[in-house]
């Protein structure tokens, strides 16, 4: 089962930044991590990840570097920057407020606001 793709719009960059906060990753690895952590709920059209990664890099929130593989090919890894960590904290607060507002309206469980 997957969720309505409209629900994910606007959140993918936050998901990506959250994963990169843990460790540097390459594109395919990010997709797999999101699939695994969401237990298959978030299934991407995988190419859409790259415009997001390149935009984050352009904004200075992540930086990329190439790493050699045994096969001779290289992988492009992305690492979050200090600015990216700051931006992620802001997006998390925003997400918290959004979720609480949705919960209040839809009658879900309301968590106390932490920010």
């Amino acid at each position: 089962m997957t969720v309505d793709r409209q629900l994910l719009k606007g959140s993918t960059a936050t998901l990506v930044l959250s994963l990169l906060e843990r460790e540097a990753m390459y594109g395919y690895q990010i997709i797999k991590e999101i699939e695994a952590l969401s237990q298959g709920l978030f299934a991407f059209q995988e190419g859409t990840l790259y415009p997001i990664l390149h935009t984050l890099e352009r904004e200075g929130l992540v930086v990329s570097y190439w790493e050699d593989r045994d096969t001779g090919r290289k992988r492009k890894y992305y690492r979050i920057t200090a600015e990216g960590i700051k931006a992620l904290a802001g997006r998390r607060r925003e997400w918290q407020r959004f979720r609480q507002a949705v919960d209040r309206i839809t009658g879900g469980e309301v968590q106390p606001c932490q920010s």
Partner: peptide
């Protein structure tokens, strides 16, 4: 240079895919 770029269509709520 890094600039405040608009997010891709998939993030803007256009015809992106998720």
């Amino acid at each position: 240079s890094p600039r405040p770029a608009a997010l891709p269509a998939s993030e803007r709520g256009g015809n992106g895919h998720a």
